Computed example of a mutant assay.
Amino acid sequence: MTGRLQSIPLDSIQTDPQLQNRNVGMQKYKEHSDAKRYKDHVNQLRRSIKADGQQVPLQVVAAEEGGVYELAPGADRPHHVPARFWLVDGHHRLEALTKAGVAEALVEVLPGLGFADALDASRLANPQIVQALSPLERVENAWGAFNQERDTYRKMPVKEASVLLGVSENSIKRFRDAVRQEGINAGKIDRDTPRDKAEQQLQAYWQRKTTWRRLSIISWRMFQKQRQDGGKRTSPAALKHAVKMAVIQALFGEDGRYDPKVIVTALEELGREAGRPDGAAYLEAKYKPKVHQPVTTDDDEAVGGDVDYSQLGVEVARMHAEGTSRAPGDF
Results as ranks from 00 to 15, higher is better:
Arg4Val: 08
Gln20Ile: 10
Gln20Thr: 10
Gly25Asp: 03
Tyr29Trp: 10
Lys30Leu: 07
Asp34Met: 08
His41Leu: 13
Val42Ile: 08
Gln44Ser: 13
Leu45Ile: 08
Ser48Phe: 02
Gln55Ile: 09
Val56Thr: 10
Val56Ala: 07
Leu58Lys: 03
Leu58Trp: 04
Gln59Gly: 05
Ala62Ile: 00
Ala63Val: 00
Glu65Asn: 06
Val68Ile: 15
Glu70Gly: 01
Glu70Pro: 02
Ala75Thr: 09
His79Ser: 15
Val81Leu: 14
Leu87Arg: 03
His91Pro: 01
Arg93Gln: 10
Leu97Gly: 00
Thr98Asp: 01
Thr98Ser: 01
Ala103Met: 13
Val109Gln: 12
Leu110Asn: 02
Pro111Leu: 07
Leu113Arg: 07
Gly114Asp: 02
Asp117Cys: 08
Leu119Lys: 03
Leu124Pro: 10
Pro127Met: 10
Ile129Glu: 07
Val130Asn: 09
Leu133Gln: 07
Pro135Lys: 06
Pro135Arg: 10
Tyr153Cys: 02
Arg154Lys: 05
Lys155Arg: 05
Val158Met: 02
Glu160Thr: 11
Glu160Cys: 05
Ala161Lys: 07
Leu164Pro: 08
Ser168Lys: 09
Ser171Trp: 05
Arg174Trp: 12
Arg176Pro: 04
Asp177Gln: 09
Glu182Gly: 04
Ala186Gln: 13
Lys188Leu: 04
Lys188Tyr: 10
Asp192Leu: 14
Pro194Met: 06
Asp196Leu: 07
Asp196Ser: 15
Glu199Lys: 04
Gln201Val: 02
Tyr205Asp: 13
Trp212His: 11
Ser219Lys: 14
Lys225Asp: 13
Gln228Glu: 07
Lys232Gly: 05
Lys244Ala: 06
Gly253Arg: 10
Lys261Ile: 14
Val262Gly: 00
Ile263Asp: 04
Val264Asp: 15
Glu269His: 15
Arg272Ile: 11
Glu273Arg: 05
Gly275Pro: 01
Ala281Glu: 09
Lys286Gly: 06
Tyr287Met: 12
Pro289Leu: 12
Val291His: 01
Gln293Cys: 07
Pro294Lys: 03
Asp299Gly: 15
Asp300Tyr: 12
Gly305Lys: 07
Asp308Gln: 13
Gln311Glu: 11
Leu312Ile: 06
Glu315Met: 06
Val316His: 05
Val316Cys: 06
Ala321Phe: 15
Ala321Ile: 12
Glu322Phe: 14
Thr324Pro: 03
Arg326Tyr: 12
Ala327Gln: 11
Pro328Asn: 07
